[in-house]
Design a protein around this nucleic acid. Sequence first.
DNA 1: TCTTTTTCATACCGATTCAATAGGAATATG
DNA 2: CATATTCCTATTGAATCGGTATGAAAAAGA
Lengths: 145, 145
Amino acid sequence: MKISTKGRYALRLMLDLAMSDSSRPTHIKEISARQDISVKYLEQIIAILNKAGFVRSTRGPQGGYSLRWDPEEYTVGMILRLTEGSLAPVACVEDGGICPRDEQCVTVEVWKRLNDAINGVVDHITLADLIHWQEEKNQNLDYII
Amino acid sequence: MKISTKGRYALRLMLDLAMSDSSRPTHIKEISARQDISVKYLEQIIAILNKAGFVRSTRGPQGGYSLRWDPEEYTVGMILRLTEGSLAPVACVEDGGICPRDEQCVTVEVWKRLNDAINGVVDHITLADLIHWQEEKNQNLDYII
DNA sequence: TCTTTTTCATACCGATTCAATAGGAATATG
DNA sequence: CATATTCCTATTGAATCGGTATGAAAAAGA
């Protein structure tokens, strides 16, 4: 019942992009340094985001990646589902999931509620929210220091 | 981000026990037949529940298992956490979990909310609720047939 | 045109977890 | 003593996790 590194790193990666200077593409090396994740692993993860059209890529020197849309258009759910696959806690409450025990089984009600609770969280937080939280956190840090 | 068979089977197992004739111990074979889970796998799962004192066991012929407490005293969370381990979506929001990036990291807020949402569901459903739902479902089935 | 910097694609790998199965020991009943 | 049950531990095949490694392709600049 864990979110894997792929999903977690993808979220940090997208937030990093969202908070980067949007006037030029950000290259993987920078993100790798800031987020302390290997370049090679980041490449794999961003490839998924790129194929899905979540980011725009530019090759060659001065190349890199940038967000395709505004931060408020990305929900955490979109990013996690893309990289993690379904977030449903069991297969039988997935879209198109079928269970042979459906008629008798009542534990499925638990899974449905769990699924709704999970979706309720991830589908209502956007990258814009994360940016906002990050800015608040940075301010507090400045204040302390 | 899935609940494994261990947790799912444990829940069905406990519900099965809760709905069984409590005047005598229920043996694994019966549960295996009703739930369509192998005897050997069930043995392993119930061993966990037994060690934790969730069920009482009696050996020998006419032996078997029975619930130790009333159904309303078992939450789904207790059963799942025992068999699955922590339900926290990432290690850093677990009890005693520490993260070196805590100061800077803002995605942790996502995980906290997710964690709260998950706990909010599983800690507020008891075996008694499941029994109730099952009885309702059975009634509806009878009605249709 | 050559070098450099970047993305892009794919293969590989060790460790761990999952989902069981298997074999047999211990214990109680009758 | 035979039988029915729980109890204990080992094994296994497959999948997943969390990356590394290698190198091709493309673009920019000298």
